[in-house]
Amino acid sequence: MKIRLIDIAHARSGDKGDTANIGLIAREEIHYPILKKYVTAEKVKSFFGEMVKGEVERFELPNLGALNFLLHGALGGGGTKSLMIDAQGKTYAAALLRMEFEIEETV
């Protein structure tokens, strides 16, 4: 079945220099394995494409049913250097929640 990330997860994002972080959290416990299996660092990197110049790192927090992503080189230099309206990556969480993908499981 096809799912939209926003239906199974919520998220918050912010900045550290030129790196954006996105905390992606399963809405229900049963959704965490889906996030872990399908929302890989590679998939997030290719999803954001040219918006992220550097690497994407992923960390797992099974205790919170959550994943933390670091998007390096995503903020146009970061801080007061960046010309982006979203220089602090505040809306990157919502951007990630736009992701849609096919899963083998039913939820």
């Binding site: 918050r12 912010g14 900045d15 972080n21 992606l24 960390f59 797992e60 927090l61």
Partner: peptide, 25 residues
């Protein structure tokens, strides 16, 4: 949870002057 994940890096390794906290615990 949303605030816990806000602006963190490696969750196993949250370094402050006092300790290194592990968010996965």
């Amino acid at each position: 949870k949303e605030q816990l994940l806000y602006e963190i890096g490696n969750p196993n390794n949250y370094i402050t002057p006092e300790t290194v906290a592990d968010f996965t615990t």
